[in-house]
Structures are given as structure tokens and as C-alpha cells.
């Protein structure tokens, strides 16, 4: 059964699904707290944490100074000593401020200590272009995180997945980055009222098909689905897979799909060179080489910072037309 056939449940937009995920994570775990810049009094600049301060009070929903290193350091120290930190780095671009705490502390402490420390840390952050916010407020930097052993990375692109990802991350004894998509904030979807989790490392098959596998993550799953619609009109049946978890990655689902379709196209909004798509393409080449009818294709951002001017940004961000074009090229049709 696909999402389209499911009986419509309660609808919630992406932003409110985030709020509900954090609210339920705080409700079920008294050792959980949330901290970040303007998360409490303002309920976040994106409005995603509105009401949490009123419900949980200032001991558990905490405005920090503008100090990203301090925020991740807080999570490492508090996490290693028994609390369950949920911290927010407003725009993903700002992880540059705290990469040491992320890469050298949060990710590695357990291993370096011979398994004697546990880091049950959730980091929530907003990624993505498309809102004319220019080079320092539009990036998709998930590859930086996926390259770091010790971190788990999930990139939910539906209201259902974002709530589930947050609760899953909050219950997980390892550091999890929940990379959210600012371009999807108003997107509605079915969201059950009760708390629920997502299986870690399990991909979503968004749409079944047998002529081509499109693997897309983040906001691009919606463009890939549109591309699959366009292709369906041309007699091409595309399967669309959202890995959802980029670390750990659901290699099996992807490989099984390629074994069926014999063609693969990998799509993301991040820069193409060294992106997560490069890893996925490499795995397909390693594990499904004999199934492939054509080399794996990729659609991703070009090798430049995100430009400000809307005409340039529109060229920069991949879309359904470009995905469909690349699919036709791979298949040698159209």
C-alpha cells in the first residue's frame, strides 16, 4: 500500500509535526531538555517550537546565547553525564561554527573512551535553498555529517517522517542529526497523534516502478515524484526511493530496486561533487554492476556556493524537469 491509498488521517503541516515530535519527546523523557538560539521565548525563528516553553518551562526549554560551539558542547557534556539533550542549530550552515564539537567530540567520544561513554544527543537543524537567503543560509551539508563515523543522519521530507525522526532520535542512545528542510515548512501530511518512531536505516519506497530507480533525499523526493509522474506519461515506470536515513544507509533496498529496474538515477539538492549521491552511486556500481543497463546518473547542485539572485538560484537547485531529462538520457529515450 502506498501513502496515496492510505485512509486520510489527521493532517499536520511539517512545522507543526516538528513541534509535536519535540513535545512528545519531552513529555515521555524527564531527562530530555531542548536548547538553542531563540527556541524558547520566540519558539524558533521558524516558529517550529512555539508553545514548548509554556508547556515545559525554562528549565527544560532553554534559550542559549549565540554560541553554537557552546550549544553542541553542552549537548556532549550533558549527554555524557546522563541527560538526553535535544539541541537546535537554527540554520544548517551554522554547523561551521561548531564542527569541532560535532566531529571531534560528539561523534568520537564513545569510541575513543573504549565504549565507556554514551551520547544520546539529538541535533535539529534546517537545511536547503530556494528562499533567496544566499550562500550562508541555504546549504545542504549532510555529506559533511555522513562522512563522520559516530553520527547518524536522517533527512525527513514529509510531515510524518519529521515527527517520527525526532522521536526516534530522542530515544536513540547515539548522536542523531535530524536535518530538516526549510522549503517544506508548509507541507501538510498525515501525522498520527500518538508518538511513533521510524526504523533506523530503513528507506521509504515512495513509488514502485520497474524501468528506473530514482534515489532522492530531502526536498528532492518531491521533485523526483513529479519527475516520475512526467515519465509515467511517456511510458516510463520509475521507482522512487527516499533513503531517509543517510547514515546508516539502506543499501539493500536500493540494490534490490536496481536489480529490478536495471537503471539508476541519484538526486539531491547538495553539491554533486562528494555528495551523498556519490556514495550511493558507488555502492550501486559495486553491488549491482551486472544489473545495470547504463551508468548510474546523478542530478545535484553545481559546484558553486548557493547564489542569491532568484534567476541563478532557480538554475542552481535541481527540479523535476532536470530529473526527467536525466532519466531520459540514461534510458536513451525522448
Amino acid at each position: 500500500m502506498t501513502a496515496a491509498d492510505a485512509p486520510a488521517g489527521r493532517q499536520l503541516v511539517y512545522t507543526l509535526a516538528i513541534t509535536e515530535g519535540v513535545r512528545q519527546a519531552l513529555q515521555e523523557e524527564p531527562l530530555a531538555f531542548m536548547a538553542g538560539e531563540d527556541v524558547a521565548g520566540a519558539g524558533s525563528v521558524f516558529g517550529i517550537y512555539r508553545g514548548l516553553l509554556a508547556e515545559f518551562g525554562p528549565d527544560r526549554v532553554i534559550d542559549t546565547p549565540i554560541s553554537e560551539s557552546g550549544i553542541i558542547g553542552l549537548a556532549v557534556g550533558a549527554g555524557a553525564t546522563g541527560l538526553k539533550p535535544i539541541v537546535d542549530i537554527m540554520f544548517m550552515d551554522f554547523i561551521g561554527e561548531c564542527m569541532d564539537e560535532i566531529v571531534n567530540q560528539l561523534a568520537k567520544m564513545r569510541y575513543m573512551f573504549g565504549g565507556k561513554a554514551t551520547l544520546p544527543v539529538t541535533v535539529l537543524t534546517m537545511s536547503g535553498a530556494g528562499m533567496n537567503l544566499a550562500a550562508q543560509h541555504s546549504q545542504s551539508l549532510e555529506a559533511w555529517l555522513c562522512h563522520t563515523p559516530g553520527l547518524k543522519v536522517v533527512m525527513p521530507a514529509t510531515a510524518y517522517d519529521v515527527k517520527g525522526a525526532i522521536i526516534t532520535a530522542a530515544r536513540e542512545p547515539n548522536p542523531v542529526f535530524v536535518v530538516m528542510c526549510k522549503g517544506l515548512m508548509a507541507l501538510p501530511g498525515d501525522v498520527p497523534e500518538e508518538p511513533y518512531t521510524l526504523p533506523i536505516g530503513k528507506a521509504n519506497v515512495i513509488r514502485e516502478g520497474d524501468g528506473l530507480t530514482i534515489v532522492a533525499h530531502g526536498r528532492m523526493i518531491h521533485e523526483a515524484t513529479k519527475a516520475a509522474d512526467i515519465l509515467a506519461g511517456e511510458g516510463v515506470s520509475a521507482e522512487v526511493i527516499d533513503p531517509l536515513w543517510l547514515q546508516p544507509l539502506d543499501t539493500d533496498t536500493i540494490i534490490n530496486s536496481v536489480a529490478k529496474t536495471h537503471n539508476a538515477l541519484v538526486v539531491h539538492e547538495a553539491v554533486r561533487f562528494g555528495g551523498v549521491g556519490a556514495e550511493i552511486a558507488a555502492q550501486i556500481a559495486e553491488l549491482a554492476f551486472d544489473s545495470l543497463d547504463a551508468p548510474v546518473g546523478r542530478v545535484a547542485a553545481p559546484f558553486s556556493p548557493v547564489p542569491f539572485s532568484p534567476v541563478l538560484e532557480q538554475t542552481y537547485v535541481p527540479n523535476a524537469e532536470r530529473i526527467a531529462d536525466e532519466a531520459r538520457r540514461i534510458l536513451g529515450v525522448g
Binding site: N132, L133, A134, A135, Q136, H137, P307, F308, S309, P310, V311, L312
Partner: peptide, 14 residues
């Protein structure tokens, strides 16, 4: 975001 801007439209306000 115009080509005639100080940053040729690449940077914008920020």
C-alpha cells in the same frame, strides 16, 4: 539580485 549590483546579484543583502 541584478547584474549591476555591488556583488553582481550573487550576494544580496546579507
Amino acid at each position: 539580485g541584478r547584474e549591476t549590483g555591488y556583488n553582481k546579484g550573487r550576494g544580496g543583502s546579507m
